[in-house]
Design a binder for these strands. Sequence first.
DNA 1: GTAGGTGCAAAGTCTTTGCAGCTTG
DNA 2: CAAGCTGCAAAGACTTTGCACCTAC
Lengths: 134, 134
Amino acid sequence: VSRSSQASAIHRAVGLLDHPTADEVFMHVRRREARVSIGTVYRNLDRLVADGRLRVRQIGGQRRYDSNTATHAHLHCTRCDRLIDIPWRDEEGVGLHPVVQELGFRVEDQILELQGMCAACQKTEAMTREEIPE
Amino acid sequence: VSRSSQASAIHRAVGLLDHPTADEVFMHVRRREARVSIGTVYRNLDRLVADGRLRVRQIGGQRRYDSNTATHAHLHCTRCDRLIDIPWRDEEGVGLHPVVQELGFRVEDQILELQGMCAACQKTEAMTREEIPE
DNA sequence: GTAGGTGCAAAGTCTTTGCAGCTTG
DNA sequence: CAAGCTGCAAAGACTTTGCACCTAC
């Protein structure tokens, strides 16, 4: 278990921020909690993920950390890159999909991501179209 | 539409290889088809994705390109990083999930990835355990 | 000639790592 | 003092880009 003040501040920061990147965690901790370096942030995030206390997802070119370790899906707005949690469980038993069984693949985790456009970005786009009609 | 010999060789290579990275495409084309640079590979892959002729996914730290543009899911072996296509369509209408509607999120694409261990890696692991029991 | 592509190399972004020093027990 | 962490800075892996040249109408 983590003991240093940096380690606990890093873990706490992920919970406070919304699907932060390593750099966002770094900024947050450095600004309000403790002296820390980016290398330490990466080392601790790696450890927390390995221990199952956090999850990571690669979104838009960088890793985002998620303190919600329960099974859930994400809405990913490809315009503003925001990630929104939505409750989800595999009602359909897709892990038991016949092809998966046939292949002898052992499913350990499921990732579902719905990509699209969040309400805010839809509004922005609508306004832009009004102002600058083609 | 792409016209240069490099462009068509790059497109073809993605179809021949199995979920290749940009570098694998680069190696393949350079070796068997035409003189090409890595920058040109990236530029053409980007274009093909923008045109909807290819899909990309970020897996294990790098992008992998997929010539299968139909809706399908992936099995991702986290041991050997292999990607396996499996047929899948959203039978459950998860895009219409009440929470998604409530948020006014417009779903444009769905990504389902089952992470785990492929049959080959399960065998390898089993053999390793026999040889080096704890 | 011009629009669009290309090779090359430099620059960028994000992540990892070697190392000496600090902390805790 | 041993084990485990840390800051710092250099190194890495992967991707993007500026620029001069080339190629096809």
